[in-house]
Design a protein around this nucleic acid. Structure first.
Length: 461
RNA sequence: GAGAUUGUAGCUCAGCAGGUUAGAGCGUCGGAUUGUGGUUCCGAAGGUCGCGGGUUCGAACCCCGUCUUUCUCCCCA
């Protein structure tokens, strides 16, 4: 018998961690709902035809593919085995684990377009899988919390996303964050302006690394990707942008000849105007030209959230995609959305010590188990305590008291009710406060009141 | 997918240039205390040295492969 192990990049979540994760999940969920988003869940498995080609070549490689059921290799010919081994996967796997929540959402919208109220706002909180190599803050199985609106071009949605990010992160206690915003159209405009129209793809990939590798190396990489020295020379103004307080005017001048670039700027300024209109308290948003998320489907706004003071990747990302449903045969549906990474948020909160105390209490009251008679006597008390709203349990075995109290101590149960022969005779039960060690004798009703009164300030009963 | 790095008791780690029966602290379990936890004292259990192969008289230690950990690149939540 070999020792059990977990697949790389996956984790168990024990009771302690689950309490914290649930806190994150419920906080985000209630924020999404307050903004009018409705829940959706989609299957873990999708057909590979839905998943493939949506995330670029890299993405296809990171998809977990599921072997066909039954004799998956039975119909393969000898030629298949000798040909390119990657070709074989299309013949033996036709399903895969979902890679994100946006593509399954697009699939859902297309399949149900006749019945959905548009604009359709949905949120979705489920795990996703990527066959990535794990690192800090990077797992192969992790949860995403997505909120998307599909069926409207309104920039109000973008502004609401900014608001939702602020509200949910602040509710979690993460105060020091930056919502970075850019617009894909501006990047397209820049490509036009420097005389490299249509090359914003590679431009983005290189520019995105500016704060990581610096100006020199970005230019070097651009040359490697086919940009001429003339192109990169014209690009020069961009390297000063990130230090500017108000880069809009500067950009407007620079991109004056690019229609799409001007459009991008208009959109960006409109988002700022709307957020201001909401009266958001000290917005933590920042325009960042170097922000160019790799996903190939973004067409308008691009979002990314960085938790400051923690060495970890972005905790949230999103943007507008004008034509996601187009790949499923329904063009013209514009959507915009955001995705929060629960696991990274967890890591950030753990590192910054932001989890609230007193969340770990699961059982409020434990009854001891002396003997058969006391056990039977206690059952109705357990039921009464539960009906009073207390998390209650009785120790299941009549073992030594020491052991029972030790159990309560380790489980951090605040109150223990001792019931022995004398208690049964008098009807006065012994309540022990595990924190102070203090013991009081009282009737069942009084005890339930006492415990509730003590816990009320900490816990909602 | 490329490169580096880690793996010894439940946990954190020792293990002297390859040399007999692999150690410690914490934790666990039992007892001191047959109805009183967190402190103390006494005692005990617990290890295919990640896995598989090789070199050697002899491997936890050296070599190869594989899995795993952490990190960089790539990409991303």
């Amino acid at each position: 018998m070999s020792k059990p192990s977990l697949p790389r990049g996956t984790r168990d979540f024990g009771p302690e961690q689950m309490v914290k994760r649930t806190f994150i999940l419920t906080t985000i969920r209630s924020t999404f709902q307050r903004f009018g988003f409705q829940p959706l869940e989609t299957p873990t498995l999708e057909n590979l035809s839905v998943l493939m080609g949506k995330y670029g070549d890299e993405g296809d490689q990171l998809l977990f593919k599921v072997l066909n059921s039954g004799d998956f290799a039975g119909k393969l010919t000898p030629e298949d085995w000798t040909a390119d081994s990657k070709q074989i996967t299309t013949k033996i796997a036709e399903k895969g684990l979902r890679y994100d929540l946006t593509v399954p959402f697009a699939r859902y919208v297309v399949m149900n377009r006749g019945t959905l109220p548009f604009p359709f706002k949905r949120f979705q909180i489920q795990p996703v899988w990527r066959a990535d190599r794990p690192q800090k803050g990077r797992y192969r199985e992790f949860y995403q919390c997505d909120a998307d609106v599909v069926g409207t071009d309104s920039l109000l949605c973008e502004a609401e996303i900014v608001l939702m990010l602020h509200e949910s992160l602040r509710a979690l206690g993460i105060a020091d964050f930056t919502v970075k915003i850019n617009n894909r159209k501006i990047l397209t405009g820049i490509a036009e302006t420097i005389g490299a129209a249509g090359m914003e793809g590679p431009l983005c990939v290189a520019i995105d690394k500016l704060d990581k590798i610096g100006k020199e190396k970005v230019i070097q990489e651009l040359h490697e990707r086919g940009f001429t020295p003339e192109n990169t020379q014209k690009l020069d103004p961009i390297f000063n942008l990130s230090t500017e307080e108000q880069p809009f005017d500067l950009l407007r001048n620079w991109l004056a000849d690019s229609e799409i670039g001007r459009k991008g700027l208009d959109e960006l300024e409109e988002i700022w105007t709307l957020v201001e209109g909401f009266g958001l308290n000290s917005p933590q948003m920042q325009f960042d030209v170097t922000l160019a998320r790799g996903l190939s489907y973004y067409t308008g706004a691009i979002f990314e959230v960085k938790a400051n003071g923690v060495q970890i990747g972005s905790i949230s990302g999103g943007g507008r995609y004008d034509n996601l449903t187009g790949t499923f045969g329904v063009p013209g549906l514009s959507g915009v959305g955001i995705s929060l990474g629960v696991d990274r948020i967890y890591d950030v909160m753990e590192e910054l010590n932001l989890f609230p105390e007193n969340q770990s209490i699961t059982t409020h009251l434990m009854l001891t188990n002396f003997d058969r008679e006391a056990e039977l006597y206690g059952l109705k008390i357990v039921k009464a305590a539960r009906e009073a709203g207390l998390n209650t349990e009785m120790y299941p075995d009549a073992v030594k008291l020491k052991k029972q109290l030790d159990y309560a101590d380790r489980k951090q149960i605040p109150f223990v009710l001792l019931i022995g022969s004398s208690e049964i005779e008098t009807g006065l039960l012994t309540l022990k406060n595990m924190k102070t060690g203090e013991q009081t004798k009282a009737s069942v009703n009084e005890i339930l009141k006492l415990v509730k009164a003590y816990l009320e300030p900490q816990i909602n009963i």
